[in-house]
Design a protein around this nucleic acid. Structure first.
Length: 323
DNA sequence: AACGATCTCAACCGCGTGGCT
DNA sequence: TAGCCACGCGGTTGAGATCGT
């Protein structure tokens, strides 16, 4: 055995660089069907010329259905700033508090936006009177308050009033949904994406329970509490909007509701079928592969055709793209 | 319109860690 | 207990996008 660590894979044997749509589809399809018990073995099993690490990264940072896209909200940015103050560059830990955001994304946002902004803020404030400071460790009253908040975080007791979503992520309270939405936990659920129908039901139930208390609470209180309900990411409206699903009838709320009814009747197999179909539809839409309204008598989607073993993915991709 | 500077972010790299034998 | 292996994390890179002149 030679010195140093053996490379995780043969660099000459694997493809590197940006992922093609066909590769994405192949990876998604494989994980949907077989999960990701073993990242190292996955590329071979899935027929991908990629390193296992690369597959894992691609899945976690980009392809997971619950990954949130788009700009960070004010709330999210503030949360990052606060958590960074507490934990420093523990990106995965910070990501665990931000549903749908990955450590990589948070790291990028911090390095490109927040760090600079805070530096500017600090500079500006140095020129003005000393006020509350997020960036410095000065002993102002506000930073004292902040340190109290962060203490809560350190003891895994998130401060309910300061983090819109933080109370959703207490380990004790985590549902399968939030677990699967958490990149750092992604390894613990090898069969992914099978949880959201149940979460939808839980969510509805919880809303109803909250509403029952309406008589004895002010509307404001109720609203605040509703905000704290754990909304399954897969059901997050923003998420679906981000995916530009308006054009896909399958994702209309009526159909989804219908599906829930059906799912309880037809069981796990049907549900999985629906999940796969849902993803193919989404990917076709996202990747511009969607066929025209009548996709053929055999119900094979463009994306599925890509995955057929006897079809060259790249050729199929371009062929579909041109139609 | 063209070009260089700057920014963004997906992907890579190497190391630390924990589980298994 | 030591060695191996796989995973996950954090730092870094570089291609493409955007901005400014």
């Amino acid at each position: 055995m030679g010195k140093g660590r053996a490379p995780c894979c043969d660099k000459n044997q694997v493809k590197r660089g940006p992922w093609s749509p066909a590769e994405d589809l192949r990876l998604i399809n494989f994980i949907q069907n077989y999960g990701h018990d073993n990242w190292r073995a996955l590329p071979k099993q899935a027929g991908l010329l990629r390193c296992g690490k690369s597959c894992r990264l691609r899945w976690i940072n980009y392809l997971r259905p619950d990954v949130k896209r788009g700009n960070f909200t004010q709330d999210e940015e503030e949360t990052i700033i606060k958590l960074h103050k507490t934990w420093g560059n523990k990106w995965s830990k910070i990501a665990s508090r931000l549903p749908g955001r990955t450590d990589n994304e948070i790291k990028n946002v911090w390095n490109t936006h927040l760090k600079k902004r805070l530096l500017n803020t600090a500079t500006t404030k140095d020129c003005n009177e000393p006020k509350e400071s997020l960036t410095t460790s000065s002993s102002s009253s506000s930073s004292l308050r902040l340190s109290n908040e962060t203490q809560d975080l350190e003891t895994e007791q998130p401060n309910k009033t300061n983090y819109v979503t933080s109370d959703l992520f207490c380990p004790e309270q985590q549902t399968t949904s939030s677990l699967s939405s958490n990149p750092s936990n992604s390894n613990s659920s090898s069969q992914v994406d099978k949880v959201w129908p149940q979460n939808h039901l839980d969510f509805g139930e919880e809303v109803e329970k909250k509403k029952e208390n309406k008589q004895i609470r002010s509307e404001l209180e109720l609203e605040l509490e509703l905000e704290s309900i754990e909304i399954p990411l897969e059901w997050d409206k923003d998420f679906w909007n981000i995916l530009d699903l308006e054009d896909i009838d399958l994702f209309g709320s009526n159909e989804v509701d219908q599906y829930y009814c059906q799912a309880s009747n037809f069981g796990e197999e049907k549900r999985q079928e629906f999940e796969n179909d849902k993803w193919f539809k989404y990917l076709e839409n996202e990747l511009g592969l969607e066929a025209d309204g009548c996709s053929g008598a055999d119900d094979v989607t463009a994306a599925e055709r890509l995955l057929m073993d006897d079809v060259d993915p790249c050729m199929a991709y371009f062929a579909d793209g041109l139609t």
